[in-house]
């Protein structure tokens, strides 16, 4: 599809707004990063602290789940509704996750030899 795309130049005001918006987004990314670091610290701390393993295991798994969602939606921009075919993409990602879950279920329950 060979139509020459024309790229609209932003006006000075628009450009300033654009840069500001990008900077704001970047700040929120850094916040997300801080939360991730915090979650990691909590996870490691709860593993070394002397809590009951039956509590810690589901807890750290939950923290991992939160972190992964953060990675996917904030860092990898899956939250961007305007991205190209992002609906299809999330369908595939979550479909893959669902299938992956059945593997865990199976390998942890019906392999016992």
């Amino acid at each position: 599809m060979a139509h020459d795309t024309h790229f609209e130049a932003r006006s000075q005001v628009q450009q300033e707004y654009y840069r500001k918006e990008n900077a704001a987004k970047m700040r929120s990314q850094v916040t997300q990063f801080a939360i991730m670091i915090l979650l990691t610290l909590v996870a490691f701390a709860s593993a070394v602290a002397d809590f009951a393993p039956n509590f810690v295991k589901p807890f750290v798994l939950l923290l991992a789940g939160v972190q992964v969602v953060q990675q996917l939606y904030a860092f990898m921009h899956m939250e961007d509704k305007k991205a190209y075919h992002i609906g299809v993409i999330s369908f595939f990602m979550w479909g893959g996750a669902l299938i992956a879950f059945t593997f865990f279920l199976c390998f942890l329950t019906i392999i016992w030899w």
Partner: peptide, 25 residues
Amino acid sequence: KFVGFWIFLSCEVVLFASLFATYLA
């Protein structure tokens, strides 16, 4: 490329799930 790479990543999810499941077993 954008769509294709995401699709590839969803296949990597399944690949690593197989390895994780094997490790756990």
